[in-house]
Amino acid sequence: MPKGCLVITVSGLAGSGTTTLCRNLARHYGFKHVYAGLIFREMAREKGMSLEEFQKYAELHPEVDREVDRRQIEAARECNVVIEGRLAGWMVEEADLKIWLDAPIMERARRVARREHIPVERAFVKIAEREKDNRKRYLNLYGIDVEDRSIYDLVINTAKWGPGGVFNIVKAAIDHLYPDGDAGSG
């Protein structure tokens, strides 16, 4: 386990494997896992809305995104935390390691279909619409283009490796950054 204070962000589109990686990192290193998607889903439940309804609501109410982002930034003040969210890499500027996970949209649609027990075609349409809406919302709210990967230290196509392989790549990056197991002071 790295000593000191380590903050890692993991971002990616639906079905790219962000949650799996974050759970594996949290379990292996004993990190706290902060999940922007869970915060968003909890806020949707609080409003009595489906995820799709709340997504549309959030487009018209920028305070939703700002609250999710505020909670991510707050979590980054802690040590040994992995923060998962589409904008986590952008919001947590001082992160020690920023990771973007990607996979072709059909692969991601298959994963989402399995996870949500829906047809692949429906998953494809659902994530394509959501990504289009999110991209527009993030551009309008923050001027951030989620397709810009230039801020990330590590970009991984998860279609090429299973969850264990992705974890091993990230673990190797952490071990390379902190070969003596010392994450420094953050």
Rank of each mutant, 00 (worst) to 15 (best):
I8L: 13
I8G: 05
G17R: 02
T20L: 10
C22V: 08
N24W: 02
F31T: 06
Y35F: 14
A36W: 10
L38K: 15
L38H: 14
R41L: 07
E42Q: 15
G48W: 15
G48L: 12
E53C: 08
F54D: 06
K56Y: 08
A58G: 07
E59Y: 03
L60G: 00
H61M: 01
H61G: 00
E63G: 06
D65T: 00
R66A: 02
Q72L: 14
I73T: 07
A76P: 00
V81Q: 05
L87C: 05
L87D: 01
V92Y: 08
E93H: 08
E93L: 07
D96T: 09
K98Y: 13
W100S: 03
E107H: 09
R108E: 13
E121I: 04
K126Q: 15
E129H: 06
R135N: 07
R135W: 00
K136Q: 12
L139T: 00
Y142K: 00
I144M: 02
D148R: 04
S150A: 14
D153M: 11
D153F: 12
N157Y: 11
W161H: 15
G162I: 05
G165A: 12
V166T: 15
V166Y: 10
N168T: 11
I169E: 11
K171E: 15
A172Q: 13
A172V: 04
L177T: 05
Y178D: 10
Y178M: 09
P179L: 10
G181H: 13
D182V: 06
S185D: 13
